[in-house]
């Protein structure tokens, strides 16, 4: 059985987990077995709807103390659940919490693990999982040698596959150890889509000259419904908050559309965004290296091009 860890935040199921279920259910089909979900804690979502993504059952450990994430407690509980249910493959989203628990679970199950997988395993001979390495600059195909396997999948690498199944919910009784981690506060940036979950991203670099010029970028993002990102020097200079920094030493993202404005395209920047499906580069220097990695390029001054692009998007939206 393929068991998929369903991550929650504040009692809501995370988007990354829906993709993990889709991936786990495709793998279960490939292996001729079932795909089942595992929820820790109590959630507001209707768990039967997870059937749409291919989970035939959802096992729920209905213990509110699990609503707060603790890597040590959660990994203990997930490993116990996997043993009790007889899971042979465990799937996690390679998001913040998935990264924190999947390797610990693999240790407890004596399972080999591949983190950051980007496609379904090849199970023709053995069990070979392909993952991104060198910050997206290459792939490695890795054989897992153990009977139980653990995989975490890169966000936006497989996609959500929606059908019309309905999952059966089952309560799972597992002893939950008392957490010794005390969460003292949570600060959410209101009304913003987390960068790793955004399908559209507008990003700015040093070419925008200063924080006072970000208005044109924010207007474009608003017109598109996109999240905003930036290059490292921009966040280092505090023009933009640190959580917007993408690249090799920042966040790695793979949106459907990445629009880079006034960013030169240094190799360390590309490492964070090269898995984007479509890349648009707006730069006044025709020699900017970013054009080599782009699908669409506009050679021009951002201060003219960006407002014009925003106007065209609004025009197209309102059908004028």
């Amino acid at each position: 059985m393929v068991l998929i860890y369903i991550d929650q935040d504040n009692q809501e199921i995370k988007k990354a987990s829906l993709e993990a279920i889709s991936y786990g259910s495709a793998l279960a089909k490939q292996l001729g077995t079932s795909a089942e979900g595992l929820v820790l804690g109590t959630v507001h979502d209707d768990l039967t709807t997870l059937g749409k993504y291919g989970a035939s059952k959802v096992h729920q450990i209905n213990n509110a103390s699990l609503n707060h994430f603790d890597a040590r407690t959660n990994s203990n509980v997930i490993a116990e659940a996997a043993k009790k249910l007889g899971a042979t493959v465990l799937i996690f989203a390679h998001n913040i919490n998935g990264k924190a628990v999947a390797p610990a679970v693999s240790v407890k199950l004596n399972a080999g693990i591949v983190t950051g997988a980007c496609q379904l395993p090849n199970t023709d001979t053995g069990f070979v999982v392909t993952k991104t390495v060198f910050s997206g600059k290459a792939f490695a195909s890795i054989q897992i040698e153990t009977p139980i396997k653990v995989i975490s999948i890169n966000q936006n690498s497989f996609g959500e596959v929606v059908g019309d199944g309905v999952a059966v919910i089952e309560n799972l009784a597992i002893d939950v150890p008392t957490s010794t981690l005390k969460i003292t506060s949570v600060n959410k940036i209101e009304g913003e889509i987390p960068l790793t979950e955004a399908s559209l991203v507008v990003s700015g670099g040093r070419g925008l000259k200063g924080p006072e010029n970000w208005g044109i970028l924010l207007d474009l993002a608003k017109a598109l419904g996109a999240s905003t990102a930036c290059s490292r020097p921009v966040s280092d200079s505090d023009w933009r908050p640190h959580h917007e920094h993408v690249g090799q030493t920042g966040i790695q993202i793979a949106p459907n559309l990445y629009i880079a404005i006034g960013i030169s395209g240094a190799i360390q920047h590309l490492a964070g965004v090269n898995r984007s499906k479509t890349i648009v580069v707006i730069n006044k220097d025709p020699e900017a290296p970013f054009f080599k990695a782009a699908d669409y390029g506009v050679i021009g001054d951002a201060f003219d091009v960006v407002p014009a692009l925003t106007a065209s998007i609004l025009k197209a939206k309102h059908g004028a």
Binding site: I113, V114, F139, S141, I142, K292, D295, G297, G300, A316
Partner: peptide, 29 residues
Amino acid sequence: ATTNIKQFSLPPTKSGVKLVDPANMDELV
């Protein structure tokens, strides 16, 4: 070891950038 790297590969190179006239953002959209 519980895992073994079998093979590395490089991503396919991009087919080349399509340039859009900066005065024609309707075309980019």
